[in-house]
Design a protein around this nucleic acid. Structure first.
Length: 498
DNA sequence: GGCTCAGGGCCAGTG
DNA sequence: CACTGGCCCTGAGCC
């Protein structure tokens, strides 16, 4: 998928043509702040560029290493409760020369890469250390260890691009959060257990599980006990786990919206974005334009569909870990209520879905014009939960396998009925192709269930219907100010209804 | 008690 | 006049 105007970590030579203030230091000299560094400057943070704009970092600010400029910008934005609006589609490039052009995108990127609003002191007390102090130290230690390790294991690497450590989050780890405090190394490693999709991980999305980790979310606080249950012993064993999660319903934030928000989900510094957005289509399998006539192609096609798919259990674990962090960051009397938890779940799931769609070679080929407006009468939350549970039950009864699940996700994503899809024919072709693959797969894999294909397709209108109702319900709550600000969820709702 | 360093304030520069 | 960003002050935490 092309991301017009979005150039991750773009380095642009300054000069009279740039339209932005020219740093006098750069005239006739280095073209980026990165090049100002001297060899004697050995502090770890000074060897990095700001994850928001690429400028030289000046230290840890509000949760991560940023430059002085972004620090000040973030501070002013939070202190003054600024609400910015992007004149474009929230895809403004963010770099040293263009960071002043769109405060909306800049602030969103600050949040996306992990700057913490809560680190801006409400009481405006000067000096001292905030609660993230120990976290910063651990992160530094880990970064130093990582740099050392990479320097020793990759002797031919000129520049260490990524300093964050990733450790896969095993679902059961989530129960161990309370025991990490006493071990700085372990807790530090856990702190680095990034739960976002790959593109976000490498861009420095901080997943600070170690902050105030003595409180965990307990199963009763989750509104969907049937979902996200892997982390809790005593719940359904993995064998019975339904591959369906709310990601299927959420996938109804279809093509247009995912395109709009793809930049946010993967910050500019993401190597993933860089590679995917610059890779010519000819280098990726063109799945749409060469529709196979032979059924024997289907397994390969399904494999291609599965290639970019996320492990649902990992996604669930990620969402759960995020909720736990959120709760851990709150005081005992400031627990999330059920609706807030649902919003957080939706937000995290959307991140995962955006990343999945972005990485889909099929999806990358779709061109989008303007956003659509979908409106439908709202329903009560309980009715929605009930409908969702019914849907889950039906899908459970159908015993979906992974191939079928991914096909359903694609069928929800590729909806030719969405207004403003420019390449409608392409969407239809893709939909037909996924349809055929699903049909052939169900016939071959489940010959005893002759009507399975039809049964699966019958669930899609329900998925879309529930999605629309959920969306409308959330939008109403959004208008009432009930949704957390600056979440991907609220942005999507806001944009779609505008 | 000195040092570190992250958050806040100040203010000249900019558009 | 609002915003930016560099610089300096402050003070809690650490050694």
């Amino acid at each position: 998928m092309d991301l017009p105007g979005y150039h991750p970590q773009q380095t642009q030579p300054p000069g009279p043509h740039s339209g932005d203030p020219v740093d006098p230091l750069t005239l006739g000299g280095p073209s980026t702040s990165e090049e100002y560094k001297t060899e004697s400057d050995s502090r770890p943070e000074s060897a990095e560029s700001c994850p928001i704009c690429g400028d030289k970092v000046s230290g840890y600010h509000y949760g991560l290493l940023t430059c002085e400029s972004c620090k000040g910008f973030f501070k002013r934005s939070v202190q003054n409760n600024k609400y910015y609006t992007c004149a474009e589609q929230q895809r403004c490039p963010m770099n040293l020369w263009q960071r002043k052009r769109c405060p909306s995108c800049r602030f969103q990127k600050c949040l996306a890469v992990g700057m913490k609003r809560e680190a801006v002191r409400a009481d405006r007390m000067r000096g001292g250390r905030n609660k993230f102090g120990p976290l910063y130290r651990r992160e530094r230690l880990i970064k130093q260890q990582t740099v050392f390790h990479q320097a020793n294991t990759a002797p031919y690497r000129i520049k260490v691009e990524t300093t964050q450590i990733h450790r896969p989050v095993a679902p059961n780890d989530l129960q161990l959060m309370s025991s990490h405090r006493s071990d700085p190394f372990t807790s530090g490693a856990f702190h680095q257990s990034h739960i976002y999709p790959s593109g976000m991980e490498q861009s420095g999305m901080p997943m600070d599980c170690s902050m105030n980790t003595d409180r965990v979310i307990t199963p009763p606080s989750l509104p969907y006990p049937g979902l996200y249950h892997r982390s809790f012993p005593g719940h359904l064993p993995e064998k019975q786990e339904m591959p369906f999660s709310n990601s299927l319903a959420s996938a109804h934030f279809s093509v247009n919206q995912l395109n709009s928000f793809s930049t946010r989900s993967t910050p500019a510094s993401s190597p993933c974005l860089t590679s995917s957005s610059t890779t010519p289509l000819s280098h990726t399998p063109n799945l749409t334009h060469h529709i196979p006539s032979s059924a024997s192609i289907t397994p390969n096609f399904l494999s291609q569909l599965l290639e970019g798919d996320q492990d649902e259990s990992q996604l669930c674990a990620k969402v759960l870990a995020s909720l736990q962090r959120e709760q851990a960051n709150r005081g005992k009397h400031d627990c999330l209520n059920t609706f807030s938890i649902m919003c957080k779940m939706a937000d995290q799931t959307l991140f995962g879905l955006v990343e999945w769609a972005r990485n889909s070679s099929l999806f990358k080929e779709i061109k989008i014009d303007v956003l659509t407006i979908i409106s439908q009468a709202g329903a009560t939350l309980s009715a929605l939960v009930s409908r969702t549970q019914d849907l889950v039950s039906k899908l459970k009864a159908l015993q979906l396998d992974r191939h079928e699940f991914i096909c359903l996700k694609y069928l929800v994503l590729f909806n030719p009925d969405v207004k403003s899809v420019q390449s409608r024919r392409q969407v239809e072709q893709t939909q037909e192709r996924v349809n055929r693959a699903l049909m052939e797969h169900t016939q071959q894999s489940h010959p005893g269930q002759s009507d399975k294909f039809g049964q699966l397709l019958l669930r899609l209108p329900e998925v879309r219907s529930i999605s629309l109702q959920v969306e409308e319900y959330l939008y109403q709550r959004h208008l009432l100010g009930d949704l957390p600000c600056n979440s991907l969820l609220s942005e999507m709702l806001h944009t779609k209804h505008n």
